[in-house]
């Protein structure tokens, strides 16, 4: 099997490494993360719609902590998985796609699109800084949807390339 360009391999391994680190942070620093989120929410009451009622504010704080942990958890699983998908899909592109330009386009789409798990980090941090709904909307609109769509289109391009009938060899 042919090797994809080194920059593609770098991004694939980087995603896997970041996914591993995200998992480690999630398991080792969960209480510290929850404390940090609670402090950020308290420091920014308007963004989270805190009312001053202890019962209501506790529920809001718990929701934001849950959203931040969910973002980290999604980042961990998606970064590991997408890093592997990028590695194997880019190897297939390098091995079966004819035409240097088409290979370059598909590698670029897959590599850029594979960065979409970073949107889950934005999802976690923006939910804390901007409020849950505004943060989630920001991450979806600016990272998850555009990069995720690019990744899917890159995979569709690979499917089309794999489905095309191979050119007959000169000996045939």
């Amino acid at each position: 099997m042919s090797r994809p360009p080194l920059v593609v391999v770098f991004v694939a391994v980087l995603l896997i490494a970041l996914g591993e680190l995200g998992g480690a942070v999630l398991s080792q620093l969960r209480p510290a993360v929850a404390r940090w989120v609670a402090a950020r929410v308290a420091a920014n009451p308007a963004a989270h719609g805190l009312s001053g009622s202890a019962e209501y504010d506790d529920a809001v704080r718990e929701q934001v902590v849950f959203t931040a942990e969910a973002g980290l958890s999604f980042f961990h699983t998606h970064a590991e998985g997408v890093g592997l998908v990028l590695f194997f899909a880019a190897t297939l592109v390098a091995s079966v796609v004819r035409g240097r330009a088409m290979r370059a386009v598909l590698h670029a789409m897959l590599t850029a699109g594979a960065l979409f798990p970073l949107g889950y980090l934005l999802y976690a941090t923006a939910a804390v800084g901007l409020g849950r709904d505004a943060g989630v909307t920001l991450a979806e609109a600016w990272v998850l949807t555009p990069l995720g769509t690019t990744f899917v289109l890159g995979l569709v391009g690979l499917v089309v390339a794999l489905g095309r009938r191979p050119r007959p060899s000169p000996e045939a």
Binding site: L6, V7, V9, F10, V13, L14, I16, A17, E20, L21, G23, A24, S27
Partner: peptide, 27 residues
């Protein structure tokens, strides 16, 4: 188990990233 084996993987991945970076720079 988790800390030693997880750390081994993370250290090796960081080493791998350094190796790829060096190969990219020296091409």
């Amino acid at each position: 188990v988790w800390v030693p084996f997880g750390s081994a993987t993370i250290v090796a991945l960081l080493g791998l990233l350094a190796l790829i970076s060096i190969r990219m720079v020296r091409r």
